[in-house]
Simulated scan of single mutants.
Amino acid sequence: MKIDFQKDGNDLVPAIIQDAKTKNVLMLGFMNDEALQKTQDTGKVTFFSRSKQRLWTKGEESGNFLELVDIKVDCDNDTLLVMANPTGPTCHKGTDTCWGESNKQSYGFLTQLEEVIQSRKENQDNEKSYVASLFREGINKIAQKVGEEAVETVIESKDNNDELFLDESADLLFHYLILLQAKGYQLADVVKVLESRH
């Protein structure tokens, strides 16, 4: 890695800390050459503290270390992306991130969809909601729908109509997410099983 520590004239470069698993941004710090070397040597993310004017290993007082996974430098060679595994809250205020956000795994739109399904599960009296109606009918009906959609997906996979195949695949995934929540689980629980097999 060729890093331009002299670009701003202070021997420091910004270091963006990202959770290696969730990909959430945890904090921003600054590194000089010595902090970078110590980070690589110890496997614990170390910064140059501008307020203390010394090297500072994140977690040296709290025990909430950032365990190094990887470091990348940007296209201008003046900013680092540090991927790490946090061993506790990252912010000194006790929050997961320095922006006060929860460091939860997100699967983008699928996470949003899970939140909608959870809301429908909690409000089953919503007469207009298809999802709420499935929860009212119970696990047998939900499991039946997953089976139906699985069969339809298999049938469409044998034809050449990509649009119908994708429609049925979406229906299958949607109903599977409902089944997961009916059983008290979410997509993250399935991902953990897959990760354990990897």
Rank of each mutant, 00 (worst) to 15 (best):
D8I: 06
G184D: 04
F47N: 03
F47T: 04
L180G: 05
N85S: 09
S49R: 10
Y185G: 09
S129V: 08
L187K: 06
E114T: 09
D8L: 14
E34Y: 00
L134H: 04
R120N: 12
I117N: 02
D11V: 02
T111D: 06
P14D: 09
Q118W: 08
V146N: 00
Q53C: 12
T111R: 07
I178C: 01
D167G: 14
T79I: 13
F174C: 06
L55I: 07
S49N: 09
G59L: 00
L68S: 05
D171A: 13
A188R: 09
E101M: 14
P86M: 01
F135E: 04
V13L: 03
L55R: 03
N64S: 12
K44I: 15
N64M: 01
V45F: 01
L166C: 09
D76N: 15
D70M: 07
I142H: 02
K183S: 07
E137R: 14
A182Q: 13
R120T: 15
N140K: 15
S51L: 11
K145E: 06
L36K: 12
L81E: 08
Q37I: 09
Q124Y: 04
E122I: 09
L12I: 05
N123P: 11
E61Q: 10
T22R: 06
L187A: 08
V69N: 08
N123A: 15
K145W: 00
G88W: 01
E127W: 05
L187S: 06
E152V: 02
I142P: 05
E149T: 07
I117W: 00
S49E: 03
D96F: 01
D11C: 14
Q105F: 00
L110I: 12
I155Q: 13
N32W: 04
S119L: 11
D19T: 02
L12R: 08
F5G: 10
T57M: 07
T153V: 07
E122H: 08
D11H: 12
G138S: 07
E148D: 14
T42P: 06
K21S: 11
V82M: 06
M27P: 03
D4F: 04
L179D: 12
K7D: 10
F109C: 06
V25Q: 05
S196L: 09
S129Q: 13
C91Q: 05
K23Y: 02
V73N: 06
E156T: 15
R136Y: 02
S157Q: 06
K121S: 09
T87E: 01
G100S: 00
V146I: 04
P86L: 02
T90N: 03
L36D: 11
E61T: 15
R50P: 11
A20I: 00
L134Y: 05
K192S: 10
Q37W: 01
